[in-house]
Amino acid sequence: MGLLTGAVTGSWLAGDSGDDGARSAYTEAGDLWHSVPVDQLFPPTLLGKGAGPGGADRTWTRVAVAPDADCAGAFDRLLAKALDPVGCSRLLRATYTDATQNYVTTVGLLFTKADAAAMTALADRFEKQGLGRREDLMPLPYAAKDTVAAGFGAPQRASWTVSVLTDAPVVVYAVSGWADGRTVDEPEPAEEAVESGAASAPAQAGLGHEAKGLADRVERALRKNIGTPTEHPS
């Protein structure tokens, strides 16, 4: 059973309450990739009040959703190796653009096979070793034909963020770039690009805010579905 579209939402029935009560929120979170519709994980429109540079508001529109898949070929070799200890159950990705269509950002939800202890260990490693800020561990974008993101490939990556959750078996990431297909010689992690006084081209364009803002809001959308009754297609 793959990623569900919003069109089938109305046909769902609530699952057995006894089964739901026996499942932990952590376990339930790991099943969200096939138990909630795509529009709840990657809303068609996301509002980012105060999410832009200087506290400016942002509005993002989803332009493409990748078919749900395993992780084969989805990450560069070094990032795949760094994530290998937690395994890959399913990978969901969507690409958004801002209101001006000048920027594009891919957001990913990697549903892992790991227990809470393994996720905590990976989160600690990312934090202590600064793995989320390493350019050679930058996530790959999802480019979709006939969209504003059609030219969004690896050379176009400008800013990124990777967040390893510890209360759910999920890694949330985002990577942003310009929609005109320009290549980026010096990408900058979002954590640094959003700092006051950051002078890099990605920072000046607000691409760190794009990556961080979208990752934060997709993570919030994910959390809204944790703890709700599990639903199944009829």
Rank of each mutant, 00 (worst) to 15 (best):
A118I: 02
A114H: 02
M119E: 08
T106R: 05
T100P: 00
T97M: 03
V107N: 02
G132T: 04
T105K: 06
D98N: 13
K113G: 05
A114K: 04
R133E: 15
D84L: 10
D115T: 00
L91N: 04
C88D: 08
L131P: 01
A123W: 05
F111D: 02
G108D: 07
C88S: 04
G108M: 13
A114F: 02
S89K: 09
L91F: 10
C88F: 03
T105F: 07
T120M: 02
L83V: 02
Q101E: 15
L122V: 12
A121S: 12
R90I: 01
D84Q: 15
T100G: 00
L131S: 03
R134T: 03
G87K: 06
Y103D: 15
R134S: 08
G108C: 08
V104L: 04
T100R: 10
L83S: 04
G130Q: 10
K113T: 14
Q129R: 10
N102L: 11
L91V: 13
L122R: 12
T105E: 03
L109G: 00
S89A: 12
D98W: 05
V107D: 07
Q129M: 09
D98A: 09
E135M: 13
L122M: 13
K128R: 13
T120F: 00
L131A: 05
C88M: 08
L110V: 06
D84V: 06
K128G: 01
G130T: 08
R90V: 12
T105R: 09
M119W: 07
E135G: 12
F111A: 10
E127V: 12
E127F: 13
L110Y: 05
A82D: 10
D115Y: 03
K128D: 12
Q101P: 02
F126C: 00
E135H: 09
K128Y: 06
L122Q: 10
V107M: 11
L122H: 08
K113A: 09
F126K: 04
T95I: 13
R93W: 11
A99V: 14
K113M: 11
F126Y: 06
L92I: 07
Q101S: 14
R93M: 15
A123L: 03
R125M: 03
G87D: 05
A116Q: 14
R125H: 04
T112C: 00
P85S: 00
N102K: 11
A116G: 03
E135L: 15
L131F: 09
L110R: 09
L92H: 11
L92Y: 13
F126L: 04
T106W: 14
Q101R: 11
Y96Q: 01
R133G: 12
L91S: 09
V86D: 01
Q129S: 11
E135W: 11
D84T: 09
G130V: 12
L122P: 13
F111I: 07
F111L: 05
A82G: 04
